[in-house]
Design a protein around this nucleic acid. Sequence first.
DNA 1: TAGGCGATGACCT
DNA 2: GGTCATCGCCTAC
Length: 195
Amino acid sequence: MSMGEPTVVEHARGLLGRMFHGHGVAIVITEVEAYGGIDDPASHAFTRTPRSAIMYGEPWHLYVYRSMGIHVCANVVTGPREQASAVLIRAGRVAEGIEVARARRGPLVKDTNLARGPGNVAQSLGISLDDLGTDLQDTDGVHLGARVVDAREVATGPRVGVSKAADIPWRFWIDGDPTVSVYRRSPRAMPTAEN
DNA sequence: TAGGCGATGACCT
DNA sequence: GGTCATCGCCTAC
């Protein structure tokens, strides 16, 4: 990819180590996944629907979706508009408001697991579908902050839980960070070329 | 209008 | 490490 603008992959790497502020809780992003939008069969934006329409909109807004009917995952729309690219926040380390995060996640959850996993990130930050479309550059609600960790040790690997294009190494995490979730390949992922 | 599926997470073994 | 719960959204008829 030799485009002039930053690609979604570069955006994903750039989000590592940055603060992500939710409702009374802030995390340091330690694990992300890039989704290429219209060119990526694993992306919700591969087919345009009312749910994914927001990814075609303004960059640096929040895309929230429900997974398995229960869990809620937070994505950063990176643009450009027609590309519908987004970055999924998979894991983070709670840096502010850890008491609030503990209350949301339960008293038995270890601190390193408070925001480990996409659903847990959203839960710790108190993100719900009401936050869909939030301007992440606006410091009022859910928003991105400065980079506080020098993520020089960045590891890459295949994305987790996707059934298509599972071999594209578009998952990035801060190597050695205990809050990073362990790799699990989707059981539905095609081991070889499809029929 | 009905059926199938999913960018997970928790729990059991 | 493997299996299962669970429900809204998408697609087809």
